[in-house]
Amino acid sequence: MHAILMNLAILAYVVATGLAFAYLVERQEWIHRLARVATGAGWALQTTALVALGHALGRPPLGSLPEAVSVAVWVLVLLEMWLERRSGLKVLGAFVLPIVLVFSLKSAAAHQQLPEIVPTLSGAWLWVHIGLALIGIAAFALNFAGALMYLLQERQLKARRPGALYYRLPDLETLDRLTYRTLALGFPFLTTGLVLGVLWAGAAWGSVFAFDPLALLSAVAWVIYAGTLAGRAAGWHGRRAAYFAVIGFAALVLTLGAGLFLPGRHG
């Protein structure tokens, strides 16, 4: 049941992504409205799919990495819809939905078999650890989208030859503020999530990083984001901050990729 719903949700996201790109090119108001409807429909379908999955499993659908990634996507779409509505940044979908699509396809590919929960994995702290880290990841996906838009617009302005994107993308100030705020939002969630993970791992396994690639890589991503935030405080901004947002997200993607493909405790 949840698999069918999830596939339908992904289908809606595919449609929404196509429409978001069409809006970027065509600038027709009705295309944007359709894209918003498709995004909302996808999100609603994914919500039901996750509820169905949680019901079938008898626990939050966070016990395996594919499940957790799916929940991260769910949070990301929610944040995207909220931010787009709030800031009137109508082109945001074209930059966030592709990320949504890649991750949901990846997690769906791994979704086919329901993994048995590892006996050591239990306790409320575990769910909190995973949940907080996921919210952080979703915020950093937005951070990445904002940075990408910033870099594209900055390039247009530096080149002094405006192309189509110059007209479509908002001003640098807005984009810089977007990357800063998403960084400021994501960081505490990621930090708390990781700290809880470390504490919990220490209690459950007696060792913290012990050859778990995901834990090591997420520590790398955390260091990059911490550095960016410190740099921001010291007056970094614009292009440099945007580059770091891209690198940080690359590390996060690598982290999740490692979790999905390399053997480790995060399964």
Binding site: Q153, L157, Y166, P170, D171, L172, E173, T174
Partner: peptide, 9 residues
């Protein structure tokens, strides 16, 4: 317009 694209407001 360029100034607005750089500074926002």
């Amino acid at each position: 317009e360029l100034a607005k694209k750089i500074f926002g407001g």
